[in-house]
Write a protein that binds this DNA or RNA. Structure first.
Lengths: 171, 171
DNA sequence: GTATCATGTTACTTAAAAAGTTACGTTAAC
DNA sequence: GTTAACGTAACTTTTTAAGTAACATGATAC
């Protein structure tokens, strides 16, 4: 299924993760899935996506369901069913994807009370939240400047560059 | 202890929090404490700081200990002991404070595998991590552009502005 | 010197949210 | 009607700071 193989020859679905961090990886995972969906014309099942992401179909359905609500993908049941794109990836920015996920909490850092009565505390919170807001804006801007189609294009360039370095053996 | 009172007349140590989020609030809390330390010449005990922050002395010691390691504050034991500044707040940037805390994990978002073999997955991760890195840089730059002394100055301006609006009642 | 105050440190529990898992109902293709 | 696939609900696991409790150590006051 994984159309882009590394030079080791393993597809993404065979890679075992030893990750143990419990950070929110939905954005990068979904981007990965969308790119695969853009490279095929047949629906991909939750089970196959689960193998790509090293997780189980139920979690895939839960997350892909958010994309369906946003009109980015659709799904069909039954034989030959699965997930497929509803939008052109060239028109789909990474910010759109992040928004479709519900703009998940970006920061592990925050401020203490909402509107403290201590003016010094308020100043501390304002400064902290201000820096976080500036960072969030930068994050969103960076996401908005790229489409999922751009990512595919970059991957193709990488492959071409690799092939140019290492010519295919002909026998 | 709280030198800057709001117009309600409550000091920070009397405010009850109903917060339940478990985000890392050490940066804003420590900024708050540092400003108070800058406004007095006597050491402040962990117990008093705990009341300021609506938490307990043990947690205060744990967190303030990170600042001591960075040379920002010192502490003395026994009667009249507590925490006091080792540096001029005007020379202390918010980035210094963040660094003293060990640059705590900034994001709740991450990417999946470290170096996936699937090129599409790698592309997804690169894009995600790139946006996060840009955001982190913006965060650090914003912190570096301000000193804790600046925050105090801002608070003083606010107080002056408030007093200008609402003259003190004289009898 | 002893009582008290305060830090230093360790060990444990709590809380939040995504991830991970299990189970089962529903729908579509064959 | 059997099988494949999504839809959904309920539950457990994981991670980390926060929160808590306890006690040793050191410094001041008397």
């Amino acid at each position: 299924m994984c159309l882009y193989l590394s030079h080791e020859g393993f597809s993404c679905m065979l890679v075992l993760l030893e990750e143990t961090m419990r950070t929110d990886s939905r954005l990068s995972r979904i981007l990965h899935v969308l790119m695969h969906l853009g490279e095929t014309d047949k629906p991909i099942t939750s089970e196959m996506i689960g193998k790509m992401l090293n997780t189980n179909p139920s979690l895939v359905r839960r997350t892909m369901g958010l994309l369906r609500q946003a009109g980015i993908v659709s799904s069909t049941k039954g034989h030959g069913g699965g997930w497929y794109l509803e939008k052109q990836l060239a028109e789909l920015s990474l910010a759109d994807v992040y928004a479709a996920l519900g703009e998940p909490k970006l920061f592990a850092i925050g401020a203490s009370g909402d509107t403290p009565t201590c003016l010094l505390e308020r100043s501390a919170n304002t400064a902290t939240l201000g820096a976080l807001d500036a960072a969030r804006q930068k994050f969103l801007d960076t996401l908005a400047a790229q489409s999922v189609g751009d990512l595919i294009k970059q991957s193709r360039d990488e492959i071409a560059a690799y092939r140019a370095r290492t010519p295919v053996e002909t026998e």
